[in-house]
Computed example of a mutant assay.
Amino acid sequence: MAAKGNVPAAPGSVIVPYGHVVGNEKWRGSELARRLQGKTKLIFEDGLGLVDFHLSNRICVLYISEADLVAGDEFKRRLVRFRNASSLGGIVIVEKTPLSEQYFSAVQKLVVLQLGMVLLPVANQEEASQLITQIVREQSKDHTSNPFIRKQCSQLVEASMFRTVQQIPGVGKTKALLLLQQFGSIHQICNASVKELEPVVGQTVAQQIHTFFGS
């Protein structure tokens, strides 16, 4: 069953053979598609809606290019529509370049903090193809083990969360680690009061965190 253009396909409606990637038809002929075809088995399909690539029946990629970031807020609306309409595991790959770097922190806050999705920055489509291929290969090592796939996604989420918490003003690697150890998730950090944060990071940084999430 094909998805409409403004919604993602439902879980299970796109069947992805193990070791394959199902790409949105709009990517045919692109540099990313050409590089993927040299590393994995890429097939194209119409009707993937908001999704750019399906890496498995339940894991997909939404790709945000440098041009998307510079053009305005349409990519944000797309991500929100995806999150509201789908229970698929969404991985957002975003081109972080000298031109688009100024927009990255806002994207990071939206994707990881507000939408709870995995965010992976890349320099270009070549690096994106390597990243997608790596994820597909990891999944294919044991395609009968759903827990393995969940573990792979969990590791990506944890790494993404750790990088994102470090972007909060006043929080570096050490404080990010302490915060995640104490609260367990960004959602819990977001909802923590200044008084709850103070024993972990001190009064000044606690206030900065509270202000950051309240903005």
Rank of each mutant, 00 (worst) to 15 (best):
A123M: 06
R137L: 13
L55K: 03
D46S: 13
E138R: 09
L113W: 00
L110R: 09
L50R: 01
G72H: 02
Q102G: 06
H143G: 00
Y18D: 15
L119M: 07
S100R: 04
D142T: 01
R81N: 09
K26H: 10
R77N: 13
N57D: 15
A67G: 08
V112P: 01
R83I: 03
I91K: 02
F82P: 07
R77F: 06
T40F: 04
Q125C: 03
G89I: 08
I132N: 03
I15A: 13
I132M: 02
I135T: 10
L36F: 10
S30Y: 01
R83L: 03
E101D: 14
D52L: 06
S56L: 07
G72V: 09
F104N: 06
Q139M: 14
V80A: 06
N57T: 14
L79A: 03
L42H: 05
R77H: 11
Q102W: 00
G72N: 02
S13P: 11
E25M: 11
T133P: 09
F82Y: 13
S86Y: 09
R34P: 01
R35L: 12
T133E: 14
L119K: 02
V136E: 05
P98I: 10
K96Y: 11
Q125G: 05
A85S: 14
I91R: 01
V16G: 08
F82S: 10
G89M: 08
R58H: 13
R137Y: 13
L36D: 12
V111P: 08
H143F: 09
L99N: 07
L120N: 01
P98G: 12
E25I: 13
N124R: 06
L113Y: 03
D46K: 14
L88V: 05
Y63C: 05
L119A: 03
S100P: 04
N84F: 06
G47T: 03
L88I: 09
N84D: 15
L42R: 06
P121G: 00
A67W: 07
I135E: 07
Y18A: 12
E138P: 01
E101Q: 12
G116L: 06
E126M: 01
L42C: 04
Q37G: 15
G29D: 03
S87W: 08
E25V: 09
T133N: 13
L79V: 01
E66D: 11
F75S: 02
D52A: 00
A71E: 11
T144Q: 07
N84C: 05
Q125K: 06
E127S: 11
Q102T: 04
V107L: 12
E66H: 04
D73Q: 05
E138C: 08
Q114C: 06
V107A: 15
R78S: 06
P121T: 00
S87Q: 14
G23C: 14
R28M: 12
P98Q: 07
E74A: 15
V21P: 03
L55H: 04
S105G: 00
R78H: 06
M117Y: 03
S140V: 03
E31A: 13
L62D: 02
S13V: 10
